[in-house]
Design a protein around this nucleic acid. Structure first.
Lengths: 188, 188
DNA sequence: TATCAAGTGTGCATTTTTTGCACACTTGAC
DNA sequence: GTCAAGTGTGCAAAAAATGCACACTTGATA
């Protein structure tokens, strides 16, 4: 049992219920919606780790283009959930376009339950890992004081200009005299 | 006629020649190789804008896994060319895995010539654009004045602390009063 | 409800930094 | 030799940073 929140989107009510039954056994919270236009509101409201988006363009209700549109819209949000797409047809073009737009994985109907669950978990964990990396980077980034980054920048610019003080001062946007002061202050 | 260098990889000599004939009409230089193990040497030698990699796993010579291995190897290089994959089978799983590993596009055999060429050009231009973005960013990185990086840092730290002025000032190594002054000065 | 720690926003005098300008050099190119 | 471009430094005026004080607000806790 994984402590993840899943949201399944499908305009076929019967299929949606089947999906929910399967996913309920493996995930803590499983929501279902019939149309993706409700997704932004749901994402704004609470935690969602992965979205299962069905692109059944056979019934004319929610077609492939629309599916890609929603995929794109969801992925543009600040902290997007993992997205796994489902399609009834083995169309490579759609799969490729979906992957280009940031889908995390692709499942074809009829799906294999075990495979579906594995793909969902893998996609969520991959997303979490990349999140953590970003956080670590920004945390490390936030430590230095203004003076430290100033010193770092001074070193860099001085190096880049080959220690041409006049040019360096110009690049840094400070007066030449001030640059001399700072060089002495930091012992550069 | 595009001034791009293309490298086509296929272990079927006849198909390779067909490809070359088609591509020669559209691209400045078209190379052909029978096995991807020559690719690293070729890439080290000269300019290659795009690679057309055929993954025909029907004959047992160059199978799908091997194709993905080479895709991965090429994409790990410092300045990788765009890669378009070709497959005789409309297998979505392979397409998805290939896209995950950084393939730029996917074409199924039998291919449509116009579509193939368009995809190659699009992939190269996309690659060039992202290159330019990186260059611009790194170039811009050396341009900004001390005040600009100061402002950037202020924004970042304020955001990170949830606009806790006292903590922000502490992190930045300046007095609280000064931080207020800077916030007003920069309009944060 | 009272209280207390932690934070906010601002004023003010003092100290520090920045700035602009001046001056006397050095250096390399032409 | 000279000329443009750069260096290193002094100095007074202007600007910014600092420490401290004061009157708040806020959320948790006894």
């Amino acid at each position: 049992m994984h402590n993840y929140h899943i949201l399944a989107i499908d305009d076929n009510e019967a299929l949606l219920q089947t999906l929910k039954l399967i996913l309920k056994k493996e995930f803590a919270v499983v929501g279902t919606v019939r149309h993706p236009n409700l997704v932004p509101a749901i994402l704004a409201g609470g935690k969602v780790d992965a979205i299962l988006l069905d692109m059944n363009f056979d019934k004319g209700r929610l077609d492939c283009e629309e599916g890609l549109y929603w995929l794109n819209a969801i992925k543009k949000r600040p902290n997007p959930p993992a997205i796994i797409l489902m399609t009834a047809f083995g169309d490579i073009d759609i799969a490729v376009r979906a992957m280009k737009q940031g889908a995390d994985d692709f499942v074809t109907k009829p799906w294999d339950n075990r495979e579906l669950i594995e793909k969902i978990v893998a996609a969520i964990e991959k997303r979490n890992n990349s999140d953590n990396r970003q956080k670590q980077e920004t945390e490390e980034d936030s430590t230095p004081t203004l003076k430290e980054i100033e010193e770092e920048r001074l070193r860099k610019v001085l190096k880049e200009t080959g220690r041409n003080i006049t040019k360096s001062a110009e690049i840094l946007g400070i007066s030449r005299r001030t640059l001399y002061n700072k060089i002495e202050k930091y012992g550069l």
